[in-house]
Each structure stands twice: as C-alpha cells, then as structure tokens.
Computed example of a mutant assay.
Amino acid sequence: MSASVRRIERTTRGRVLSVERMHADGRDVNRIKVMDDSGRVRVYVDDPQQQRGRDARARGDDD
C-alpha cells in the first residue's frame, strides 16, 4: 500500500487524504483520495500488481 501512495504522490503532486484497500474485478486494489493544488479531490484506483510505469486510473473528481 505504501508503494501505491508514493506512486500517486509522485504522479499527482497532490496531498493524500486517505487510502483504502478494496476488492475490484477479482483483484485487490488501493483506493487513494488526493487533494490537488486547487483544492479538488480526486479518487485514484491503483493496482499494485500492475507493471511499473502505468498510471493509476482516476475515478472521478470527488467522492
């Protein structure tokens, strides 16, 4: 989970608000809520088993 947080922090340069492990599509994924520079909250879903170099998917602007 900490690797997912570091990856999202590095990619988005935002502030991580929360992290939650969940089950989706038969896999365990990390749901990470991030606040960007303008104060918008975005939710990313990171699959820790994905190959490195692939970006996490954003689910929406806020939750």
Rank of each mutant, 00 (worst) to 15 (best):
G60T: 07
P48M: 00
D36S: 07
G39L: 10
A56D: 01
E9R: 13
S38T: 15
V19S: 12
V34I: 11
S38I: 12
Q51E: 11
D55P: 12
V16Q: 07
V19E: 06
R15D: 07
A24S: 14
R10M: 15
D62K: 13
V41T: 13
Q51F: 09
V43T: 14
G53I: 02
E20Y: 09
T11K: 14
D36Y: 11
G60N: 06
D46A: 10
R10G: 15
Q49V: 00
V19W: 04
M35F: 00
Q49F: 01
R52T: 08
R27M: 08
R6N: 13
V43Y: 03
V45P: 06
R6H: 07
T11C: 08
D28T: 04
D61L: 11
S18F: 05
D36C: 03
R57A: 12
R59E: 15
R10P: 13
V43M: 10
R13H: 12
V34D: 12
D55Y: 04
E9V: 11
D25R: 15
T11Q: 15
S38V: 14
V19Y: 07
R59H: 10
R42L: 08
Q49D: 06
M1K: 08
Q49A: 04
V41N: 07
G53R: 03
R15N: 01
E9W: 05
G53P: 02
V41K: 13
A3I: 10
D61G: 15
V41R: 13
D47H: 01
D55W: 05
R54H: 06
T12M: 09
V45S: 04
D47Q: 00
Y44N: 04
R57Y: 03
D25G: 14
I8C: 03
G60P: 03
A24I: 14
Y44L: 07
T12W: 07
D47R: 00
D62A: 13
Q50C: 02
E9F: 09
G14Y: 07
A3D: 14
S38K: 14
R6P: 02
S4G: 01
V43F: 04
E20M: 05
M1C: 09
V34W: 03
V45Y: 05
V19D: 05
V34P: 05
R54C: 03
V45L: 05
D61S: 14
R52I: 08
Y44Q: 06
S4Y: 00
Q50E: 10
R31T: 02
R21V: 14
R57D: 13
A58K: 07
T11F: 11
E20W: 01
R7L: 08
Y44H: 09
D55I: 05
N30M: 15
R42D: 09
T11E: 15
Q49S: 10
Q49T: 06
V29M: 05
G14E: 05
D37A: 12
R15Q: 05
D63M: 04
T11A: 15
S18T: 08
D36M: 02
S2H: 10
R21L: 14
V5Q: 11
D36R: 06
A3S: 14
R10W: 08
G60Y: 04
S2M: 08
L17T: 01
D61P: 08
G26M: 07
R31D: 04
R15Y: 01
V29W: 00
